[in-house]
Design a binder for these strands. Structure first.
Lengths: 220, 220
DNA sequence: GACGCTTTAGAGTAATCACTCTAATAATGG
DNA sequence: CCATTATTAGAGTGATTACTCTAAAGCGTC
């Protein structure tokens, strides 16, 4: 693997674990046992590393959100989408931790991200339209748009919600289970719009993602 | 006003405007035209300032979320709650920008915050129970719990959503209007649970908070 | 094996950070 | 008016930051 790629991988891992704020370029170099000069030979500054990671993240998410045109959507599709997005968010979780800072520090990243968000929202809308066409949910366009936006907000906030409100240290195994709770939570958004024909089936599926009692009951 | 209070006020203003990360204790002192030594006479470190601001924030939110016991809830109550919370979140918006960092840096704040969150969630649940008792919404306990959690997530993420996805510079006047969009968005969460008796009334009310076309249509 | 290009090491730098120390000044109370 | 205490100024500190510079090492090719 090239040094350049090793820098990206190490940066991503360290940013995720400790937060971008707490990881300096010197830390990254030391972790890789290379010199700071070497790091700066491959990237002109820290922003450039972040920018590249953010591009990978966006590509990952957009790939997950592709909408099949030739066939109708199924309930399983929806789960696949959610799991894909949640695992993408997890793998790049440093990005949503203080995105305001990342965007404020890099105009190029900001415009890229805002375009990316529009694309995402359009695809989420398209997915819900697909579910409506498939007869799985029933709602008007206003409700659908609001649902799409609320879904986006809940999904993208879910990880930081977990990390701030629940388990203290960011142990991965524990959180991976809780991560699935995001699926449950989004299903709860859609549930009232389910058609009678699909309600029982979907609700049964949702239960598979029900948060484990040990932390759910500690909430309510 | 005491120097101590002036430090708190200036810190809050600067943290909100520039982000806690970008505001050093030296900045705060310089802004107040006092010496760093003076600042550290009143607060033992930066964390202590943040901690105190976080306590004010929590008290503000809990005060807003008080549930009247002697009377039934009305639709107007709900709007009052939402506006109160949103304006509280706005006035302390630095807190939700990188809360993970704030909590990781201060164990005391972390335990306070987690207890605070539980209290908030319980009150949101109580409010929805009140609306159910008043016959405004109809749902079972599972749906109600999920709705409460989703409401909390959407409300607390709304401001950072606005600041990252929409208008670039954080101009207050523009954002104050958009801030109200959060009310609309939460109403959208509840809308499918409205009883027939109240649906038309509430939906009409919701329209008053509909986001202005100039940025809504840019989204979809 | 000499040349040129890419990659690397590592010392160094100016700026900034949170915070400390000492001493001067103001306020207070007897 | 004096003694004590509370408040303030301001210089300074060691650590850390993002990043630069120079020179050396690899390495492919003729």
């Amino acid at each position: 693997m090239t040094t350049r790629q090793r820098i990206l991988d190490a940066s991503l891992a360290l940013f995720n674990e400790q937060g971008e704020r707490n990881v300096s370029t010197n830390h990254i170099a030391a972790h890789l046992e290379i010199s700071p000069g070497n790091l700066y030979y491959h990237f002109k500054n820290k922003q450039a590393i972040i920018f590249e990671l953010a591009m990978s993240y966006q590509q990952r998410v957009l790939t997950v959100l592709e909408v099949p045109e030739e066939r109708a959507l199924t309930v399983t599709d929806k789960i696949t989408y959610l799991q894909g997005i949640l695992s993408g968010l997890w793998d790049y979780r440093f990005i949503h931790r203080d995105m305001e800072h990342l965007l404020a520090a890099d105009d190029q990243l900001k415009s890229h991200y805002q375009a990316f968000f529009r694309q995402c929202l359009q695809r989420v809308v398209a997915i819900y339209r697909g579910l409506r066409t498939a007869g799985i949910i029933a709602l008007n366009d206003d409700d659908l748009n609001s649902l799409a936006l609320n879904t986006w907000i809940v999904v993208t906030s879910w990880i930081s919600f977990l990390r701030t409100h629940l388990l203290a240290q960011g142990g991965q195994p524990e959180n991976m289970l809780q991560l699935q709770g995001g699926v449950y939570q989004v299903f709860a958004l859609e549930r009232p719009f389910l058609t009678e024909a699909f309600r029982d089936e979907v609700v049964a599926l949702q239960q598979a993602f029900a948060p484990r009692p040990q932390w759910l009951h500690s909430l309510f």
